[in-house]
Design a protein around this nucleic acid. Structure first.
Lengths: 227, 227
DNA sequence: CTATTAAAGTGTAGAATTCACACGAAGGCA
DNA sequence: TGCCTTCGTGTGAATTCTACACTTTAATAG
């Protein structure tokens, strides 16, 4: 049924930049559009915000519908509102960025084609999604160094080398192993497990897990994470 | 004339958190609402986004219309989209924060009542504007220490003591004078003028101005401002 | 079972930065 | 001329940052 308003209104959408990490390069999850405009082009998962749902809810719902992901780290990024960003009509899009752990998506993907791309090797994207992605990348780089969110991109149990690879991939520069480990452990946010990670003909690595409870406590007592 | 859509749509607004500095305390510019809802309550300046204008344009326009301000520092903050934030209907608001130099507003204010309030002594606000303001404050505090935006709150010519007072007011803690001055000057972003600031029975203070051109250059060559 | 291989794990010294701290200089005013 | 008030300045100790190389451990191949 139709809805009428005194003045014309922009349509409201959400778009999600979903980051993942395969151990080597930073990845982004894209879906192939099934409908015009930009049919068959790759795009960020997203869609229209319903009138009775929060923006966050909309982002979570679209993410689940289009990629099967749920319970991921999700944060509002920026709102894109240039007039012609959608060729059909005025569409304002609230962009989110999400961080997902390895393996979270593969099982879930259904009908719609969803695929991981390395951020260094992207296809051309629909709408202004390159801009959104660039904004998200900048934000991720900035955030990584002063908030412990890297763990959202790693499995629950991980080695310090994995963590370092992640930082190197996102920041795009090599880091010193000893300094990195010293710093990473200095916050008391990583709990060593009684397990090790065996992987080939060499010494196995200590596994750690991130301690979110401790992080909450530290955060409250005015604390600085900086790596 | 009415406009009809297949699905119901949220209305889109912008709201601006305008910060100022009177030399002592951080201030926020509020306007008194002339219409329901929240008639006669204080609120952030803002209004509806037109369908043919950018979000930034809408924020600038509303700012000018309601407070007379123009050519101010303006940056998108966050988009507020809970379902019941406006009692009338679904309204999603893109919040901005603005920094204005002393004296910019007093001359311009017209019919609508606009008034500066200290952030430490605010009236109760319409809608969810307290939340928006809190978000803006957090952002300002965070930003001030790693981007040279404090100058936007000072007159074009200012003394180092004024700059320090500003930082103290925003961060809410006293700073060491010698360390502050050393750091502030170390970036080569402040140009000493051939003038001094006379103000009472004591030694006059050196005036400086901020060098935006130099800042742009430094920013490009990957540079870190941190105070 | 021994040697080889590959990544894990560990310490230190010099440089740079941060932090705490106190007094003479300059101008206005009585 | 003296007093008052803010301006403006330097140093040493503590901390943090940075650069840098070898031993340990388990798996595998011979």
């Amino acid at each position: 049924m139709p809805h009428t308003y005194e003045y014309p209104r922009a349509a409201l959408t959400v778009d999600c930049v979903v980051f993942g990490f395969d151990g080597g390069e930073l990845q982004v999850l894209l879906i192939r559009r099934g409908l015009a405009p930009f049919k068959d082009k790759w795009a960020l998962p997203g869609g229209f915000v319903r009138v009775e749902e929060t923006l966050d809810d909309a982002a979570r719902r679209e993410l689940e519908e289009e990629t099967g992901l749920h319970e991921v780290f999700l944060e509002q990024l920026y709102t894109f509102g240039t007039v012609k960003r959608d060729p059909r009509e005025r569409v304002v899009s609230v962009a989110y960025f999400a961080l997902v752990k390895p393996g979270a998506v593969t099982a879930a993907t259904d009908a719609a084609e969803a695929k991981w791309f390395s951020v260094s090797d992207l296809p051309s994207l629909a709408f202004d999604h390159v801009d959104i992605l660039a904004t998200a990348l900048t934000r991720l780089r900035g955030k990584l160094t002063y908030q412990p969110i890297g763990f959202e991109l790693l499995p629950p149990k991980f080695t310090l080398t994995q963590l370092q690879r992640l930082y190197e991939a996102v920041l795009g520069e090599p880091l010193d192993k000893r300094n990195f480990r010293k710093k990473a452990l200095s916050f008391d946010l990583l709990i060593p497990l009684k397990e090790t990670h065996r992987d080939g003909a060499h010494r196995p690595a200590q596994l750690y897990r991130f301690d979110p409870a401790r992080y909450q406590r530290l955060k409250r007592s005015g604390f600085l994470f900086e790596l």
